[in-house]
C-alpha cells in the first residue's frame, strides 16, 4: 500500500518536514536562551546569521503544509476504492485507528504552520526582529505536533489493509451515534444556520470595520478562529444536505468527490485559509505593543485582514448559493 505516488509524496514531505523542523526546534531553544539584540557578542551574531537560514527552511515547510493536508485528504478519498465498505475518505481513515488522528494532527499542524507564516510575514517587515522570540517559541509547539502528525500518518499508512472491512460516512455521521460527528449530524438545520450566519456575519462585519477604522483586531481574530468549528458544524449539519439533496447524508468528505463537482475544495480552501490567517493574527496580537511591530502591523495587517475577510465572504456566499440553488427543502 505504501508504494503509491501520493503516499510516497506524503512520506517525502514528512521526511523533509522533520529534517528541517527538528534542527530548527533545537536552534529555537538556543535562540530563546541567548538572544540579545543589544549584544555584539559572537554568539548573538551567529544566532542572527543562523536565524535567516532556519527561517527560510521553516517558511518553506510551513507553506508546504497546506498542500500536504490537501494531498492527505485527496489520497484518502482516492484510496477508498480499495477498501470494502469505504465510499469516501472517511472509509479510508477508518481502516485503522490512526486515520483520523493523522488527519486531525495534520490539520493542527497546518494551522500552526500558517500562524507561523503570518508572524513571519509581519516580522520580516521590521528591522529589529520584534517577533523573533514568539516565532521561535511557536516552533517549539509546531515541532512536537509535526512529529506526532508524521508518526500517526505513518502508522495509518502501515496499517492500511485491503482485506479490512471498514465503516464509512453513513455510520460516522449518523445522528444516532455517540461521537462528536454524530452529534453534529444530529444538529437541527435551523439553529445550525442561525449560528453559522451569526458567527460568519459578525466576522465579516468586524473584518470590514477593521479595514475601515483599524480597530477590532482581537475580536476579528477570535471570531475568525471560532468561525472554523462553527463552519465545519454547519457543513455537517446542513450544507452537506443541500449539496447531496438528501436529508440524511451529512458527510463533509463526499463533497470532495467528482460527483459533486469537487465543491468541497471550493468550500474548504477559503475556509481553511481565512481561519488560519485569523488564528495567526490572534497569536501575533499580544505582541502588537512592541514599537517597531506596531508600525508594521498598522501598515500590513489591514491587507492581511482584508484577505481573510474576502475568503470568509467567499465561503459564506458559496454556502448561501448552495442553499439557495438546492432542490432539497430543509426549512419550509
Amino acid at each position: 500500500m505504501l508504494f503509491q505516488p501520493a503516499i510516497m509524496a506524503l512520506l517525502l514531505v514528512d521526511a523533509i518536514t522533520l529534517a528541517l523542523l527538528l534542527p530548527a526546534a533545537l536552534f529555537a531553544i538556543q535562540l530563546l536562551r541567548h538572544w540579545d539584540r543589544n549584544s555584539g557578542h559572537a554568539r548573538q551574531i551567529r544566532l542572527e546569521r543562523r536565524t535567516a537560514l532556519v527561517t527560510t527552511g521553516v517558511a518553506l515547510l510551513s507553506g508546504v503544509q497546506g498542500l500536504a493536508l490537501l494531498l492527505l485528504v485527496f489520497t484518502a478519498d482516492a484510496l477508498s476504492v480499495q477498501f470494502v465498505g469505504a465510499m469516501c475518505a472517511v472509509g479510508s481513515f477508518n481502516v485503522n485507528a490512526w486515520g483520523f488522528p493523522a488527519l486531525l494532527l495534520r490539520m493542527a499542524l497546518f494551522f500552526f504552520a500558517a500562524a507561523w507564516l503570518v508572524m513571519h510575514h509581519l516580522d520580516r517587515q521590521a528591522r529589529d526582529y520584534p517577533l523573533i522570540r514568539a516565532r521561535h517559541a511557536l516552533l517549539l509547539v509546531i515541532a512536537p505536533v509535526a512529529l506526532l502528525a508524521v508518526l500517526a500518518q505513518l502508522a495509518w499508512f502501515l496499517g492500511l489493509r485491503s482485506d479490512v472491512i471498514t465503516s464509512c460516512c453513513g455510520s460516522l455521521f449518523s445522528p444516532g451515534g455517540a461521537t462528536v460527528a454524530a452529534e453534529l449530524a444530529a444538529l437541527s438545520p435551523l439553529p445550525a444556520m442561525v449560528g453559522f450566519y451569526l458567527v460568519l456575519g459578525a466576522t465579516l462585519l468586524v473584518g470590514a470595520y477593521y479595514w475601515r477604522r483599524r480597530r477590532g483586531l482581537t475580536l476579528f481574530a477570535l471570531l475568525g478562529s471560532a468561525a472554523f468549528p462553527v463552519a465545519i458544524a454547519a457543513v455537517i449539519a446542513f450544507v452537506s444536505l443541500y449539496i447531496y439533496e438528501h436529508p440524511h447524508h451529512h458527510c463533509p468528505f463526499c463533497l470532495l468527490k467528482a460527483e459533486y463537482g469537487y465543491i468541497g475544495y471550493g468550500l474548504y480552501l477559503p475556509l481553511f485559509g481565512a481561519s488560519a490567517i485569523a488564528f495567526g493574527l490572534g497569536l501575533t496580537r499580544p505582541f502588537a505593543h512592541i514599537g517597531s511591530l506596531r508600525q508594521v502591523m498598522a501598515a500590513a495587517v489591514p491587507r492581511v485582514v482584508g484577505i481573510a475577510t474576502a475568503l470568509f465572504l467567499l465561503f459564506t456566499l458559496l454556502v448561501a448559493w448552495i442553499s439557495w440553488h438546492s432542490n432539497l427543502i430543509l426549512l419550509s
Partner: peptide, 11 residues
C-alpha cells in the same frame, strides 16, 4: 546611531 550589522539581509 542605528545598529546595522545585524539587520536582516533585505534591509
Amino acid at each position: 546611531g542605528e545598529e546595522v550589522s545585524g539587520l536582516p539581509e533585505r534591509f
